[in-house]
Write a protein that binds this DNA or RNA. Structure first.
Lengths: 260, 260
DNA sequence: ATTTCGATTTCACAATATAGAACGATTTCG
DNA sequence: CGAAATCGTTCTATATTGTGAAATCGAAAT
C-alpha cells in the first residue's frame, strides 16, 4: 500500500514557486465570484500592489477579465484549457463510443465522472432522447455519498473511509437516513458491483451507476444512467443495471483491465 | 542612466510577473499535448530545473498531472475552473432559457458562442431532438470566416477587417470561393442581420446564425441553429432565420440593448 | 467644484527564482 | 546480464525578480 503521496498542505512553499502559487491562488479566489483589487489582496493576505500585479498578469494572458465596475472574473482562456484538459484524458476518448451506445439503448442521460478531491467531477454527459432538464454540466462537482456516481467511485474503499466520507458530507443527506442504513446499502452495492441513487441527491431523479477500472484494477471513474423517477421503476432499474454494468466493464476492458 | 532597466524591446518587461507568466506558459505548452521535463524546458527556453519547479508547483495544485511514462498533462483543476469561468459569464446565464426554447421550437442543435482571439469559442450547446453526431464541444474553438457563428460575430466589422480575417484563415476555405464572392455574401448577411453556413466548414452541415448585442450595441456573442443538409431546405432556412433573429434580439434585449 | 474611492505606478530593498551540476533510479541497449 | 543512456529530482551560490508602502492618477459620487 505504499503510494508516494505528496500530502503536505504546507503553505511555507518548499519545492514550490511562491509567485506562481500566489497567481494560482488568485484564480481560486476569483472562481468564487468577481472581486476587486482590494478584496482580492485581503483574501490572499497580500498587499494591494502585489495582488494587482498578479491579477494584471493573469488578465494579460486572458485567464482573467477585468470589468471596470465589478472587478476581476475568470477569463475565456480557462474555458479553452478546461476543454483541452478534458480531451487529453484518455479515459474520455476511450469511453465516449460506449457512452453513446448506452445512451441510445437506454434513451436516458448517460454520465461519466471521476473522483477529484473527494468530489464527483463530471467528464462527459450524453443527453438522452427524452427531454430532461439536465442540471449537471461537464466540469461541475457534486457530493460523493449521495449520488450514484459518487458511491460507485468509492465502492472499493474500506468501511472506515466510507464513514469519513459520510461524515464529511453529513449536511448533504436530505433523507436523514442513518449512517448504519447507508452502510448497509453500500455493502449491498459492493456485492452487486453497481450503485443506485434513489432521489437522494435530487428529488425525482434516480440513477444507476457502476465503477470503471484501469489495468491495475483501481476505480478511476464511474458511469451512470439517469432518469425521472416516473420512468425508473424497480424493474427498469434492474434491467438498466445490467446495461450499465456491461458498459462499465467494456470501458474497463478497453483501458486494459482484465480481471474477473 | 540605469543600465539594467527594462529595455523596451524585451517582451518580458511590462507590468507582468515573470514567474507567473512562465507558469502560465507551461500550461500553454502542455495544452498541445503531454510532454516530459526536458521537452518542456526546451519549449520554454528555460533550464530543466526551472521547468521542473514550475511544473511541480502546477501539479501540486492539480493544474497538471504527472504520469511516469508520458510526462505532464493538463489536470482536473482546469476543468473545474473552465466550468466556473463559463458560469460566471452573465451572457451564458441570460441566454440559456432562450436557447432552450429555440432548441425545442426548431428541434435542432442550438449554439451560443463568443469571439475569443480571432476564433469562435463555444459557450453553450443545446442538443436537438434529432440525434445528430455533435462534433462541437463547449470550450472548443473554430474558424471565423467559414462558420455561421463566426461570420455573425464579425458582422459589423469594416471590409478591411473582413479581408484580414479572410486572409488569415485562407486555408480553411474548403470550397475555394474567391474573397470577392465571400465579401458579396457578407454584405447580404449584414443587410439581413443573419448569417448562413452552407456546408462551408463541414460537409453536410448547414446553419443559421445571428449576432447578440450588449447595451452598447457591440456584438458580444452569436447564436445559431445547426442541422443536417437534408433537413435544411431553402424554405426551412428562411423560416429558421426568423426564429434565430428573434431569439438573438430577445437575448440582446435581456442584456440591456434597446436599439432598432 | 470637491470629495471619495479604487485602480495604477514608483522605488529601494531583500526575498525569491534561477541555472548548472550532481545524484539516483529507471529503462534501454549491447 | 552488465553498461550506458535517459529522465526525474535535489542542492546551492548568485542576482534577478517580486515585494509593500506610499504617492499618483482617474473617475464616479456629492
Amino acid at each position: 500500500m505504499s503510494t508516494k503521496l505528496a500530502d503536505s498542505a504546507d503553505k511555507s512553499a518548499p519545492g514550490g514557486s511562491q509567485t506562481l502559487l500566489r497567481g494560482l491562488d488568485v484564480l481560486d479566489v476569483i472562481a468564487k465570484g468577481p472581486v476587486d483589487v482590494a478584496r482580492l489582496a485581503a483574501a490572499l493576505g497580500l498587499s494591494k500592489s502585489t495582488a494587482y500585479r498578479l491579477a494584471s498578469t493573469l488578465v494579460e494572458r486572458r485567464f482573467l477579465v477585468f470589468t471596470p465596475r465589478e472587478g476581476y472574473s475568470l477569463g475565456p482562456k480557462l474555458m479553452q484549457l478546461g476543454y483541452a484538459a478534458r480531451n487529453q484524458t484518455a479515459l474520455v476518448r476511450v469511453a465516449e463510443p460506449h457512452l453513446m451506445q448506452l445512451s441510445s439503448v437506454t434513451e436516458d442521460t448517460v454520465h461519466l465522472a471521476m473522483l477529484d478531491q473527494r468530489k464527483v467531477l463530471y467528464l462527459n454527459i450524453i443527453p438522452g432522447q427524452r427531454r430532461i432538464v439536465i442540471s449537471s454540466r461537464i466540469g461541475e462537482r457534486q457530493p460523493l455519498t449521495s449520488t450514484g456516481l459518487g458511491k460507485a467511485l468509492i465502492l472499493n474503499r474500506s468501511e472506515k473511509e466510507w464513514e469519513q466520507f459520510y461524515i464529511e458530507e453529513g449536511s448533504k443527506h436530505r433523507s436523514q437516513q442513518s449512517f448504519a442504513a447507508w452502510l448497509k446499502r453500500m455493502k449491498d452495492y459492493r456485492r452487486q458491483g453497481i450503485t443506485l441513487d434513489l432521489e437522494e441527491n435530487e428529488a425525482n431523479i434516480r440513477c444507476v451507476a457502476a465503477p470503471v477500472l484501469n489495468e491495475g484494477g483501481d476505480i478511476i471513474a464511474a458511469i451512470s444512467v439517469t432518469g425521472h423517477a416516473q420512468n425508473m421503476t424497480d424493474d427498469r432499474m434492474r434491467s438498466l443495471s445490467e446495461d450499465v454494468l456491461h458498459t462499465a466493464q467494456a470501458i474497463s476492458a478497453d483501458l486494459g483491465y482484465s480481471g474477473g
